[in-house]
């Protein structure tokens, strides 16, 4: 037992505490899944607040939701879905050991990710121009004027936008972290570190990216599509 484990020659990327690559790979994958579980609970706190306030202040939420740009929102959803495709194909390329294809797909993911952040920035800027950022300069007059049938109370509209900024802001922060991870992956893919035998970082980095995509898949209907029918 001891002799055979000592006899195993040093494998690229195998840490000393593991017996073999499979154990390391399984540990890394479980670790990422468990971490994503904690992330669900992190966003879960905000989803809980959202649920309760939407139940209390439906009209104010509807008015706030209508003021968001649905074209930009839908585009951003599509951008993220495209990025998820390039990630999934990237993992496949890594599995098959196609270095150039992997590099190309990782770069495409980075482009989509940054594109999402740019569009998000444009939307936030619109909110700034419309005085829809919660705080002393918040102004609900436009919401009241545009939605006379909802009889809006101006105070709780700030709750909608507080949640909007907290949720999209923390989601964007996760995107920034994701872009950082993918820069790291791109660098090592360029150096040719990933092989069909060892590509765990690409896989678990991909899991993180898909998760951030899933959060947006829920944020989109919850924030943009509350009450669009007139």
């Amino acid at each position: 037992m001891a002799d055979s484990s000592l006899a195993v020659e040093h494998q690229e990327g195998l840490d000393h505490q593991f017996v073999d690559r499979e154990q390391q790979r399984n540990a890394a994958s479980l670790g990422m899944w468990v971490f994503l579980g904690t992330e669900v609970m992190f966003f879960g706190g905000m989803f809980c607040a959202y649920l309760i306030y939407r139940y209390w202040y439906y009209n104010e939420f509807a008015a706030g939701s209508r003021s968001l740009d649905i074209v930009l929102g839908t585009t951003n959803t599509a951008v993220l879905i495209c990025s998820s495709l390039t990630v999934a194909l990237g993992v496949r390329a890594a599995q098959m050991g196609k270095r150039r294809l992997l590099l190309l797909l990782l770069l495409a993911t980075l482009v989509f990710g940054l594109g999402f952040l740019v569009i998000k920035g444009v939307e936030w800027h619109d909110k700034y121009v419309e005085h829809h950022i919660p705080g002393p300069s918040f102004n609900a007059e436009e919401l009241i004027r545009k939605n006379p049938e909802l009889h809006i109370d101006p105070a709780p509209t700030q709750i909608y936008f507080s949640l909007y900024f907290a949720m999209t802001g923390l989601h964007a922060l996760h995107m920034v972290v994701g872009v950082g991870i993918f820069c790291f992956l791109t660098y090592y893919a360029w150096k040719g570190r990933y092989t069909p035998e060892y590509h765990t970082p690409v896989e678990i980095g991909g899991l993180y990216w898909h998760f951030v995509d899933i959060i947006w898949i829920y944020l989109f209907p919850l924030l943009y599509l509350i009450d669009r029918k007139r």
Partner: peptide, 12 residues
Amino acid sequence: FHLGIFDPTRGG
């Protein structure tokens, strides 16, 4: 940042 999620003056 003046977000108002628990603020009773804004309905929180």
